[in-house]
Each structure stands twice: as structure tokens, then as C-alpha cells.
Simulated assay, not measured.
Amino acid sequence: MASPLSLFESMSVVSATMVEAARANDWDRLVTLEREMAALRNEILHAAAAAQAPLDAAEAVRKAELIAAMLEDDVEIRKHVEPWLGSVRKLLSGTARDRAVRAAYGAFGP
């Protein structure tokens, strides 16, 4: 089993890759990376529970640096994802509204 710190290092790499995917509007890749991030988070929870010794001072500092970097990445990812999600919501609400109108007035068609 990997150490919690090495898992945080892996999460940081995935987080940076998520930023690249968001900047490129590569939503499929972003979803895949989010799943990878969730798996790493679960591994960290298991590794932390099984850890025999706490992190030393240098490891704790590194962990804090990695978490800070991932939080910055999250802000950057949200800058790209939130506008896209807004347009998707608008599209979906328009589609739902169209279906409701067709259903209400008995209109058929695509």
C-alpha cells in the first residue's frame, strides 16, 4: 500500500492534469480524471487509517503544500467548468420546456 504522502503527490499530478483538461474544454477527460481523483482520495483514507506513524515535520509541510496547490487548481478548474455547466443547464431547461409545451398542446415531432 502506498504511503499517504505519495498518494497526495499522485493527487496533485491528477489535479494539475484536470486543470489542463478544463482549459482545453475536454470534459470527457475531466470526468475520467475526477474518477481517478476520487479513487486516490479513497486510498488516502484507507492508508491514513492503516498508517503506523504520523508524518514528520517535513512531510507535513509537503502535504500542506500539495493541498494548497490542489485548492488553487480547483479554483482554476471551476473558472472553466462553471460557464460550461451554465450553458448545459440552459440547454437542458430549454429542452425540458419544449417537451412540456409539446405535451401540453399535443404537438408531436422531434
Rank of each mutant, 00 (worst) to 15 (best):
D28N: 13
M1F: 01
Y105A: 10
R97W: 07
R41Y: 10
P54C: 01
E82S: 08
R78G: 02
I77T: 04
I67G: 03
A39V: 02
E76K: 15
E9Y: 02
S3Y: 03
E43I: 00
D28Q: 06
N25T: 06
V88K: 13
A57H: 07
M1N: 01
L5F: 02
R99E: 07
L91P: 01
R41N: 11
R78W: 01
V19K: 08
E59M: 04
L55M: 11
H80K: 09
D26R: 04
Y105N: 11
R29K: 04
L55D: 07
E82M: 15
W27E: 01
P83W: 03
E72R: 13
L91Y: 11
G94A: 12
V101Y: 13
E76A: 14
Y105R: 13
T17A: 09
K90M: 05
A39Y: 01
V14E: 11
V101P: 04
S6Y: 02
D26L: 01
E36Y: 08
A100W: 12
A68V: 06
L91V: 05
A60F: 02
A47I: 02
A16N: 06
T32C: 03
V75N: 06
L45M: 10
G86R: 11
F108L: 10
S12M: 05
A104N: 14
L5Y: 04
A53H: 12
A48P: 02
M70Q: 14
A2E: 08
R29Y: 03
D98W: 03
A107S: 12
R102K: 13
A47Y: 00
M11H: 04
V88E: 09
S6F: 00
V101M: 15
H46Y: 05
A69T: 12
E76S: 10
L5E: 02
D74W: 05
S87G: 04
E34R: 12
S87W: 00
A39I: 01
E9N: 12
E82N: 10
R89C: 06
E76H: 07
R99N: 10
L85Y: 07
V19D: 04
W84A: 08
A24C: 03
S10L: 06
V101G: 08
L71E: 15
A16L: 10
A50D: 01
S87C: 09
T32D: 13
P110K: 15
A104C: 12
E59W: 07
E82K: 08
F8Y: 15
A48K: 04
I44Q: 00
K79R: 13
A69R: 15
P4D: 01
A104E: 09
